[in-house]
Simulated scan of single mutants.
Amino acid sequence: MDVAKLVQKAKKGNDEAFELLISSVRNKLYRTAYSYVRNEQDALDIYQETIYKAYTSLKTLKKPESFQSWIIKILVF
């Protein structure tokens, strides 16, 4: 399914849509976190915190098609 459509569904409270969004970026999130901290457990902690922050602030995402870059920015900052 289209990322923008999944974002719209997730914004309306569809947790399954949010899970699909996360599954599409799961590997990239972990690899990015690991490249910063070089520690598996810390990378997993950052990964989980990023998902939580994205879930709680999804309504602030202005361009649904930019979901991947938006969530990577959450992870990095």
Rank of each mutant, 00 (worst) to 15 (best):
L44W: 06
I22Q: 04
Y47D: 09
N39W: 04
A17G: 10
Y36P: 00
G13L: 01
T50N: 08
D42T: 08
D45G: 08
A10K: 13
S23M: 11
Y34G: 05
L44N: 07
V25L: 00
K12T: 04
S35Y: 03
Q48A: 07
T32R: 06
L6H: 10
R38N: 15
Q8P: 01
E16L: 14
K11D: 13
T50R: 13
L44G: 00
V25P: 04
K11C: 09
R38I: 04
D15C: 07
L29F: 07
Q41P: 00
F18L: 09
G13T: 06
A17H: 12
V37T: 11
R26S: 14
R38P: 00
S23A: 15
S24N: 15
Y36I: 11
A33F: 02
F18C: 03
L20G: 01
E16T: 11
D45A: 11
S24A: 15
V37E: 03
D42Y: 08
Y34E: 02
D15S: 13
L20W: 08
R26F: 10
S23D: 15
R31Q: 11
E49S: 14
R38E: 12
E49W: 08
D15H: 04
A33P: 03
Y36L: 13
R38M: 11
R38A: 09
S35D: 05
L20N: 13
Y30Q: 02
N27R: 15
A33Q: 03
Y34T: 04
R38T: 02
T32D: 08
E40M: 00
T32I: 06
S23P: 05
A43M: 05
A43T: 10
S24P: 09
G13C: 04
S35C: 03
I22P: 06
